[in-house]
Amino acid sequence: MASNEQIDINAGFSKPLKIFIVTLTVVLFSGYTLWIDTGNIGSEKSHLAKGIAAEGKLLFQKYNCQACHQIYGLGGYMGPDLTNVYSAPGKGPVYMATLLKNGTYRMPNFNLDKHAISALISYLATVDSTGNSPLRNYKISWYGSIESQ
């Protein structure tokens, strides 16, 4: 496996060109990142979680709910997507409170108190207000993209 050939230092692009291409890419990325992190990127439905809902978000992380559940299809697949469980027909806050209080066959009982249950439900209500998952009303464009309606 010893190297048999000589290195051809003229084989590739020149160093200034390489540096220019990489720098340009990184500059574009920096602008894009700034816009994503601080600009107007979401739908008008992006309601902020405040007060008890904000506590609920931290509890969602504390109990690692996303190991089993998804928000917008992102998370584990042991349990259902919770994006719209708050407004789903036949589900809603009472259903959620019952499951959170007692657990299920697949979900352990985390011994949550009333305040924690209310916080989690409030958080999921906020998520529910932002959109739907899976997408229900959308149109497929001619080039394969989707437009929510």
Binding site: D37, S43, S46, A53, Y72, G131
Partner: peptide, 24 residues
């Protein structure tokens, strides 16, 4: 570093921006 921006309440409590930054 960016994946830890959720530590800022302004980002964490904005569900759409939070999930966007997370997956970015």
């Amino acid at each position: 570093s960016e994946s830890n921006l959720w530590l800022l309440p302004a980002i964490r409590n904005d569900s759409i921006r939070d999930v966007t930054i997370q997956w970015k």
